[in-house]
Design a protein around this nucleic acid. Structure first.
Length: 205
DNA sequence: TGCCAGGCCCTCTTTAGGGCCTT
């Protein structure tokens, strides 16, 4: 069975100075992998200098220090490169609303835009892994016994783990339906379906 | 200096409140 929605996808993750670009927070690292037919075929990773110091909390949380950022290229330079990398591919992130806010904010600063659609691995996991203890990325990786060395909270590592989780979810969904492929539109529909209607939706495929 | 958000989703709901996720 094919998994067409993975034919060309960018799975991305930002590390940032905080939670809200509307409150002045900036991206400090972008990591992404390109998935084609279920395989990682390309990677992107870069630190970026946000032009402000990051808090001790962020240094501890990510391991990214002010010293490291002082030697990094500025955000606009890195985001220009990343915009070229992702093109108009569809996009996936864990808690996509968070990464989309920062992607939109950073690209807006350099007047670059994209036409891809976002899908959220968190929303999908809440539908198909309703018995998981919680739906944090690290917890889901452990729940599905996906090999990991535990180095979470760096952008490329988290995007690689999200990509593995994504492929695992597509495989699990493909086992629940009779259709020949798991389409991107089905994934987006699933992520918006009330939990108690998930089985009905899958059985209709 | 210290602090900050927003979308989703559940329920003891919908004229609301609070937990889960992301950094």
């Amino acid at each position: 069975m094919t998994q067409s929605c993975a034919d060309s996808l960018i799975v991305l993750d930002f590390e940032t100075t905080g939670l809200s670009p509307d409150m002045g927070d900036r991206a400090i690292e972008i990591g992404a992998v390109r998935l084609e037919k279920g395989l990682v075929v390309d990677r992107f990773q870069a630190l970026m200098n946000p032009g402000k110091r990051v808090s001790g909390f962020i240094e501890n949380y990510t391991g990214i220090t002010n010293r490291m950022l002082s030697q990094a290229a500025p955000c606009d330079e890195v985001m220009e490169q990343f915009a070229n990398f992702m093109g108009d591919s569809n996009l996936v992130a864990h808690n996509a609303s968070f990464d989309k806010r920062f992607l939109d904010a950073e690209l807006g600063r350099i007047a670059r835009y994209y036409n891809g659609n976002f899908a959220c691995s968190l929303l999908l996991a809440r539908r198909i892994y309703q018995q998981a203890p919680n739906h944090k990325l690290g917890s889901l990786i452990a729940y599905k016994n996906i090999p990991s060395d535990g180095g979470f909270h760096r952008a490329l590592f988290d995007s690689e783990m999200t990509a593995k989780l994504w492929m695992t979810m597509l495989n699990d969904i493909s086992l629940m339906i009779t259709a020949q492929e798991v389409s991107f539109s089905l994934i987006q529909k699933l992520a918006k379906t009330p939990k108690n209607n998930v089985q009905k939706l899958l059985q209709a495929q």
